[in-house]
Simulated scan of single mutants.
Amino acid sequence: MSDSTGHARPRASTATEAVIRRFEGPYLRGEGEGRQALARLRHAVAGSIDDSPETWPYVFQSLAGTGPLDQWDGGASDVERAVHAALVLWAQHQQSRSRPVNVEGPSLGRQVGVLSAMLRTGDEAADAGTIRRFARLTSASTFDAQMRALTQLVSLMRANDVVLDYPRLADELRQLQNPERRKTILLMWARDLHRPPSTASAPSNPEAAALAQEQE
């Protein structure tokens, strides 16, 4: 598969996109196959593929044939963990939504910026609660802790109708686990977050901001 520019997507992105394409339509039409698949995925923990056998068929089957197998050391590979996390977060985000929440485009950092602009109140340049949640993601020392922080952000995105590119997220999560790429990904997200998004001029949302503060 390729993105809108015609470039081939990385393995994690391709696998994630394949699962979303298979189940998104049936879910939105209320069909049993889609509803069952998303229920299995969203009940898993994003940062723990080892303890989530219900997601294994979707992760491993989607990765089959996308490239050479990763060197196996007895545990899940970076790409397997990334695909698992992206699919779990997508399913949680999509729950009870009548329109697709997976939309090709901006990075996680940019969409956190959109969320922050929506939740800010008064003369604030950004929503402090959203920024704190993002800081927890960037400062977490383990993948599991990073995914717990990201789950909170995705929950707020869902509550405020902010979409996300999940195939892109999957590859960024794969790179996040690589010590040589971790800082690059975090800096990219931070730059995108603090670059004024197109919705930065949108009216503030005091009700949504109050809800977000309650969830902290």
Results as ranks from 00 to 15, higher is better:
residue 104 E to A: 15
residue 145 A to L: 11
residue 68 P to G: 14
residue 68 P to A: 14
residue 94 Q to C: 11
residue 99 R to D: 15
residue 149 A to P: 07
residue 64 A to Y: 10
residue 144 D to Q: 13
residue 144 D to E: 15
residue 139 S to P: 01
residue 124 E to A: 13
residue 135 A to H: 01
residue 138 T to Y: 00
residue 74 G to N: 07
residue 139 S to L: 09
residue 125 A to T: 01
residue 114 V to E: 15
residue 145 A to R: 05
residue 64 A to Q: 15
residue 75 G to W: 03
residue 94 Q to N: 08
residue 77 S to Q: 07
residue 77 S to L: 06
residue 125 A to C: 09
residue 152 Q to R: 15
residue 146 Q to N: 08
residue 83 V to K: 14
residue 94 Q to A: 08
residue 63 L to G: 05
residue 150 L to G: 10
residue 70 D to R: 07
residue 122 G to C: 11
residue 156 L to H: 14
residue 113 G to A: 09
residue 133 R to T: 09
residue 119 L to N: 03
residue 132 R to T: 03
residue 144 D to N: 14
residue 71 Q to W: 06
residue 94 Q to W: 05
residue 158 R to C: 12
residue 107 S to I: 05
residue 133 R to W: 06
residue 122 G to W: 11
residue 84 H to I: 12
residue 90 W to P: 04
residue 69 L to C: 03
residue 68 P to R: 14
residue 58 Y to H: 12
residue 109 G to E: 00
residue 92 Q to G: 13
residue 134 F to W: 01
residue 137 L to D: 00
residue 140 A to C: 04
residue 73 D to V: 03
residue 121 T to L: 10
residue 84 H to L: 07
residue 131 I to H: 08
residue 140 A to K: 02
residue 92 Q to Y: 03
residue 60 F to A: 09
residue 144 D to P: 06
residue 104 E to I: 12
residue 108 L to W: 00
residue 147 M to N: 02
residue 103 V to E: 12
residue 91 A to Y: 03
residue 130 T to N: 01
residue 141 S to H: 13
residue 143 F to C: 04
residue 128 A to L: 13
residue 141 S to G: 10
